[in-house]
């Protein structure tokens, strides 16, 4: 075990873990997929439109389940919208609820009940607004946390918005590939791939910018350094989640992938989705508790800083 940074490890926040990461991730996927679907419907990309909207609601619902499961008192969740004036959770609950409502009506309209074009248009516009609100909320939630300097960044909402759009588009593409009509994205595959590439590139730039900004601030430097040393982040998110799919999407967009177009885009899509989840997880897991300063001393709120013993108990001599 790496004992060198045991004191830094003792500073990591341990209360928001993978449930929240999944929630933030699925919230982003749902919102991104809805935006993809709604915009696709304007462009007349029927498959994309259909699956974008269909993916959104289940993603949000499952995400919400993870959130509620993490609460200490799930039965009181209904109280969470009480303070929208100050609390980003309350705002998020409102965004999330309205957005989920719009999404479910849109899904009903897509699958079972014929809705008029005006209603669908109105739904889409409201849905897109609240979807964007949801994306921003997942980031703003973290950036309002004064106790965790790494999260207290104005870039956080932008980062999560890019990631949400990229993962949402990726999720839509994957679903279209497996369940949509053949041929896969007839005629529009290169355009979709280029949009995806642009989003991924945007996300990559924001990730870089975010980490650099965190590194430049002394109080969040340790978190940024820890992040860049995390294998799951560097390999899982940066390499497999951003660079490889970016290359694949660019290849599909500019090159001539021919018969491999679908396969390559699905692989890229799945990688983007996994990368998005790992990004949320990284951001949560490297959050370190803030430091206090008094009379020239530095004080840290550590939680049981003690390295694990490489050998067992050794009683002395013959006792």
């Amino acid at each position: 075990m790496d004992t060198k940074n045991f004191r830094k490890k003792a500073l990591l926040q341990k209360d928001w873990h993978w449930e929240i990461a999944i929630y933030l991730f699925l919230g982003g996927v749902g919102a991104g997929a809805y935006v993809t679907g709604a915009i696709s419907s304007f462009l007349g990309w029927t498959d994309m439109a259909r699956w974008g909207v269909l993916v959104s609601f289940p993603a949000l619902a499952i995400g919400l389940l993870f959130l509620v499961a993490h609460l200490g008192n799930p039965l009181r969740t209904y109280l969470a919208a009480s303070k929208a004036g100050t609390s980003w959770i309350s705002r998020g609950v409102i965004f999330f609820s309205v957005f989920m409502l719009v999404a479910i009506i849109h899904i009903i309209g897509t699958l079972w009940v014929e809705l008029s074009g005006t209603i669908v248009l109105a739904l889409s516009v409201i849905g897109i607004i609240f979807a964007l609100g949801t994306m921003v909320y997942t980031g703003a939630l973290l950036s309002a946390s004064k106790g965790i300097p790494f999260w207290r960044s104005g870039i956080m909402p932008i980062l999560f918005m890019f990631s949400a759009l990229a993962t949402g588009l990726a999720a839509t593409v994957v679903f279209v590939y497996f369940f949509g009509s053949t041929p896969f994205l007839a005629g529009i595959a290169p355009v979709v791939a280029l949009i995806a590439a642009a989003l991924i590139l945007g996300e990559a730039v924001v990730v870089l910018f975010f980490l650099h900004a965190a590194y430049r601030l002394p109080e969040s430097r340790d978190s940024a350094v820890t992040a860049t040393k995390k294998g799951s982040f560097i390999v899982g998110d940066v390499l497999l989640g951003l660079l490889v799919p970016l290359a694949l999407m660019l290849y599909v967009g500019f090159g001539n992938a021919g018969g491999n177009t679908g396969t390559l885009m699905v692989i890229a899509g799945i990688l983007v989705i996994i990368g998005g989840l790992l990004l949320r997880y990284m951001v949560l897991s490297v959050g370190m508790i803030t430091t206090m300063y008094a009379s020239g001393f530095e004080f840290k709120l550590q939680n049981k800083p003690e390295p694990k013993s490489p050998i067992g108990l050794v009683p002395p001599g013959n006792v």
Binding site: W16, L71, G72, T77, I89, L142, G147, I289
Partner: peptide, 16 residues
Amino acid sequence: NKCIGCNYCKMACPYG
């Protein structure tokens, strides 16, 4: 009786 246990306050408190 009102707390839902979301721990947001813990994240927001700069003094732990």
